Amino acid sequence: MNPSAGGWINKHFPHLQQNVLDQYFSEESFYQQLQQTGFIYAHSTKTLSYPNPLKIKWTIEELSKINLFDALAYIYFSEVKNANKPDFTKEVIQFYELLEKESIWKIKISFFKSKPEETLEKILQQRIQINESYIQKNFSHLITNALLFIDVLAFKEYLAHKKHPKAYLTELESLITNVVILAFQKKTIKDKYENLVIKLLESSLRYHKIQPQPKGFEELNFENFKVHLERKYILDLASITIYSDEEIEKKEYAFIEKLGNELGFMTTEVDENITQMLQFLKQHKREISYFNYSNSIQHFYKNTNRMVKVLIMRNKHRLLKEILESKELVVLLTKSTHKDLSEEEKHKVKEQLLDICKTIPSLAIFILPGGSVLLPILIKFIPQLLPSSFNENRIKKP
């Protein structure tokens, strides 16, 4: 299943049914498992619907998309009697169309009639993105929307009351931004991550803009958010905020404990929640973007490198077949494994690789204007596809 290609919802749904919907998780159990996927922490590393490792490694964006879809489905099938897939799809589309009319985030809905699943796929694809242009995303760490779980909470509210959740969303976003900023204010030393996280948060908002002067803790109103999922999410966002510098000071912990108590959690529950967060961050620290703060050029290369690798690995069989059928290219690639190519030979390799990319639709990005910039990255991954006989210097493992 390819979450970036059309038709993925229909192919995915049986996995969702078997591994999530048929398990009849309680809300608390479902949320805990969603925490473990990283979705709550804005960095999905896996999904609930695919418990076993897959041959194809999905990107963070694709994992986030699946987790968002699964969470929306869980809420619908838990809240609605005799729920079914067509009604769920229709309801989610109506929900997002309702939000689109008044939010600062806009869905580009096609005027051409399409199947409900296709429409929902397009909506989810746009929803996982933040409110920045493609170029800005490439030059920052802000790839995936940090507040996707708010959609799930708003959908639950929408199903319960059948009214526009704008007031609910505005109040929840305002409360979350206040809590996060107050958590940052507890730090003794302000670090480089604060602006980054605030920017990520701000880019994810739809109804509320961050105010220069947040309210004090005593002014915050938690009374309108009594659902367990809402309160747990607020606590999680505050917890990961104080750990952004990989250290929890006494007054930071005191703030989280006070917040947890205000939200109705016992101190032991707050401690368990922090422990679970620390376990996740310890395991995935190297992958999480704001723990790997780097300059924009380095990050641009890293993102591009990852994107090209995904494209190549998903098309490796066709790509290898096309390469092996091009005799001159095979000769030049074989030569390149033990000897530097001349400028003319390098040019031939690039030309022939571009010709091959024309035959594989998924690799069309390389033949677009500016696609030549990606060619060195493409060539970098070619040796991984070639048989070991191509490289005379390769050391065989015992």
Rank of each mutant, 00 (worst) to 15 (best):
N303P: 00
N303Y: 02
L368D: 10
Y301F: 13
H347Q: 13
T359S: 12
I356M: 09
L259A: 01
S289E: 03
V330M: 04
I256Q: 00
K309R: 11
H299Q: 03
K309V: 04
Y301V: 10
V270E: 01
I367Y: 11
H317D: 15
I297H: 03
S342C: 04
V349R: 01
V310W: 07
I288S: 01
N292V: 06
K321A: 14
G370P: 02
M313L: 14
K339Q: 14
D355S: 11
L319C: 06
I367V: 15
Q298P: 02
E325H: 15
E257T: 10
R286I: 05
L368Y: 08
F300E: 00
V330P: 00
L333M: 04
Q276R: 15
D340I: 10
P369D: 05
K258T: 13
K348C: 10
H284T: 05
K339Y: 11
E269Y: 08
Q279V: 13
K327W: 07
V331Q: 05
G371S: 03
E269R: 05
K309F: 11
N295E: 02
I367F: 09
L363F: 07
R314K: 11
V310I: 14
K321L: 14
N261T: 14
T359W: 02
E351C: 07
M313T: 11
L341E: 04
N261D: 13
I274S: 00
N295Q: 01
K316C: 07
I367H: 10
N303V: 03
K335H: 07
N295V: 02
R314N: 12
N303F: 03
E328D: 10
M277K: 08
E269K: 07
D355V: 08
N315H: 09
L278R: 06
S336C: 04
L320Q: 09
V330S: 01
E287Y: 06
S342L: 06
E351M: 11
S289M: 02
S326N: 15
Y293H: 01
E272R: 10
V270T: 04
H338M: 08
Q352S: 09
M277A: 09
E328M: 04
L281M: 07
C357E: 02
L333R: 00
E272F: 13
K302R: 13
T334N: 13
I288Q: 00
I256C: 01
G370F: 06
N305Q: 14
S336E: 09
S294Y: 01
V349Q: 02
K348V: 15
F265H: 05
K316T: 08
N305G: 03
K316A: 09
L263K: 00
V270M: 02
V270D: 01
R286D: 11
D355C: 06
I360W: 05
E262W: 05
F366G: 01
I365R: 00
Q283R: 10
T267C: 11
I256R: 00
M266T: 14
S372E: 13
G260D: 04
K327C: 04
T304V: 07
T268Y: 12
F300W: 03
S362G: 06
I312C: 03
R318N: 15
L341C: 05
L281I: 14
M266S: 15
L311N: 02
V310D: 08
L368N: 08
